[in-house]
């Protein structure tokens, strides 16, 4: 059976697409699935850095597309999991370097072998975006609780419909419960009102993410990270389990935090 091809997209840049891909990919690998992540952000590659695999890149997606190498040779095996692979973007080329036909060929070859093909889509809605969503059959839209990010997500939903992806899933990234409580941030219901698509997960704003990104170790492997927990739930939902949404109440105050440390939670 052919694997699932999921594109992770947002329209707006900097909302956490690459982080989401790295964590979902790793999470699925944790569950013993065969996973390949494609970095479609040619010219601005990041996924390899977030995964801590930068120094292993020899061939990239353009080499594979132009048949300079075999697809197998371009795939980089993850440090931690034998069943997790990365197809890195080329850094010295631009998005026009790969055609839709080449992209389709690559994805067709990959989905025959892997359970999941996860595509890290570039920001924007130009050629690179078009390529990435045209080869996918499912989509995850990442957005932040900001008006501009939600607007862009709405635009993306419309563009996905045009490619016959009618039920994208939504990941709400960087929620800050304290700000929502004070009415300074859009809450989940506000965003749902506008976008009206299935919610896949809510990820609280978490410093751990920055640390893990810099270290090249996805937060999902960190059991002390709230964001990591949120990503584990997301992966479970992708796998078809129904997991309740974790409460995103405001962080406990200083005493609460102290109590938490003492009780070892």
């Amino acid at each position: 059976m052919a694997g699932r091809v999921i594109v992770v997209t947002s329209g707006k840049g900097g909302v956490g697409k690459t982080t989401t891909v790295a964590n979902i990919g790793t999470g699925l690998a944790l569950r013993k699935k065969k996973v390949v992540m494609i970095d479609a952000d040619i010219g601005l590659r990041n996924l390899d850095v977030v995964m801590g695999l930068e120094n292993r890149i020899v061939f990239d997606i353009i080499d594979a597309a132009e048949k300079v190498c075999r697809l197998r040779q371009a795939l980089i095996k993850d440090k931690r999991f034998d069943n997790l692979f990365l197809l890195p973007a080329a850094q010295t080329r631009n998005k026009d370097a790969i055609s839709l036909k080449q992209m389709k060929e690559l994805v067709d070859e990959l989905k025959a072998e892997f359970d999941y093909v996860i595509i890290d889509c570039p920001a924007g809605i130009e050629h690179g975006f078009d390529n990435a969503i045209s080869v996918a059959t499912e989509a995850i839209i990442v957005t932040n609780p900001e008006v501009s990010a939600v607007r862009d997500a709405d635009r993306i939903i419309g563009l996905l419909q045009a490619k016959e992806i009618y039920e994208p899933m939504l990941v709400l990234n960087r929620l800050r419960p304290d700000m929502i409580k004070n009415g300074d941030m859009m809450d989940v219901d506000d965003i749902n009102d506008i976008l009206a698509i299935n919610l896949l997960g809510i990820i609280p704003d978490d410093e751990e993410i920055i640390i893990s990104t810099n270290k090249g170790e996805p937060a999902i492997l960190n059991h002390h990270s709230k964001a990591g927990e949120a990503f584990r739930n997301i992966v479970a939902r992708i796998e078809g389990e129904s997991v309740p949404f974790m409460s995103i109440n405001a962080e406990p105050g200083i005493f609460g935090r102290f109590w938490k440390m003492l009780s070892g939670k």
Partner: peptide, 24 residues
Amino acid sequence: GTVRNGQRVEHDGDLVIKGDINPG
């Protein structure tokens, strides 16, 4: 369905939208 950001519906006559019209 909903008319989303970046989408435009034009019609010569009356128009009924069974959904929302989002910003944009």
